[in-house]
Design a protein around this nucleic acid. Structure first.
Lengths: 233, 233
DNA sequence: ATATCTGCGATACAGTGTATTGCAACGATA
DNA sequence: TATCGTTGCAATACACTGTATCGCAGATAT
């Protein structure tokens, strides 16, 4: 009936605001940035979009897929601002951008390397890396270079974030191994079963995380360089 | 009352079989080996031990701790059978053992690099690696070498297992990128936006996973070798 | 105006990690 | 031997999870 009073009529249009993957992924990322991956639940994402949980299944068919979309979204941040000059700049830049992205979105560390990256942004990123090396070696070597670099990034970033969380949890700034976490590690070292380790904990110099990352990265890049222009036999 | 009949008396002793971390961790690992990490629930672990779920909290205070124990248990498999001859054998052996362990316990890939490894077995493993390099360079360099190697292992193994699962899921043996997963990747490549990538998918040679792992590993080890004996200036 | 269809919401289910509560069996004491 | 305290298990409970099913309201087509 047209005579329906204001009180009967719902304030919002009965047809709810349209949704799309972009908005879903954006709010999922927001939730993850605030409370980590475990704070992302389909119910919470839907609630922020003023929708029922089941609504999301029109755009996603499983929670894992949402994670895939989140990862690919972050991959968009990994494209170089300007075309890299040479392969080394391309690879190093990618590594640093990945690390920075993981520092902005710590949950990324939990997902890195967890599934094959097939999203459009991930492919674009891979394209840039491969292209930067194209022609400098045979296909197999180029592939190996990109994969080795990305393996290093995954591992190094995971470790860095893991340490960061551990430090945050204990409150103390127990960098990596030093000033071992409370009595436990100290006791273990005191047993004398780990002399080499003990020396490192004792004499080890503090190195900031970025330097650690960059150093290992340079090593990997040097290794790549060595394989690109093989020494004449 | 001593006159309690057989029928009243429970068959099993009222005081249940004692538990310990070892048995708990063993059954958790068994569950994970069978059904992946997500098949590990405190209820299921407890059920296999014929205990109530809450019983476990006497030995563990959180599920994450159970995962930590599982990882450290696997670390016991990573100790070298016999003392390595030189640093290179130590590092390469460790890498291969880690990979093999992850192939036996695929869930390990999900946990690798996820938290600082402080368990006794993990420390023993680290000790071996550090010791193998002791004296060949300054402390910082040695540390960097071990960390870089382990970063590579984490990343490479994660990727390998991720691909393995993807292949298993699609049924098809779509190795890495080739013969892209159904229409989607093909369509993306057909757009012409990824020329370099397209060439790899088209011309790429198939390489088995172990060779990929070993190749990248050798690169990393070469990089380490280069830093251990710095060229005279 | 009626019928068909689409897609959203509510409901439901089987499971999860963990806090709390109460009880039953044990060891020590009187 | 009877009583008491203590220990530690089990049961219960809670807030939540991902997802399947189902019915209905609204839009569209006839």
């Amino acid at each position: 009936m047209s005579g329906m009073t204001v009180w009967d009529r719902p304030e919002r249009p009965a047809r709810p605001a349209p949704l799309d993957r972009e908005r879903i992924v954006a709010t999922a990322i927001a939730l993850a940035d605030e409370g980590g991956l475990e704070a992302v639940s389909l119910r919470k994402v839907a609630a922020r979009l003023e929708a029922g949980p089941m609504r999301l299944y029109g755009y996603i068919s499983t929670k894992e897929e949402l994670f895939d979309l989140m990862v690919d979204e972050v991959n968009a941040e990994l494209l170089p601002a300007e075309p890299p000059r040479d392969w080394r700049e391309a690879l190093a830049g990618h590594a640093h951008r990945t690390r920075q992205a993981a520092l902005r979105h710590e949950w990324l560390a939990d997902l890195l390397g967890g599934r094959p990256a097939l999203g459009p942004n991930a492919m674009a990123v891979t394209e840039v890396l491969l292209a930067s090396l194209a022609g400098l070696a045979d296909l197999a070597t180029v592939m190996r270079a990109v994969e080795t670099l990305s393996a290093y990034c995954t591992g190094a970033i995971r470790r860095e974030i893991a340490n960061l969380r551990a430090e945050r949890a204990t409150g103390l700034s127990e960098s990596d191994w030093q000033r071992a976490r409370g009595p436990y590690v100290s006791r273990m070292l005191a047993t004398g079963r780990f002399p080499a380790l003990a020396r490192f904990v004792h004499d080890g110099v503090e190195v900031d995380a970025e330097t650690v990352f960059t150093t290992g990265l340079e090593w990997v890049l040097d290794a790549v360089a060595a394989k690109l222009t093989p020494p004449r036999p």
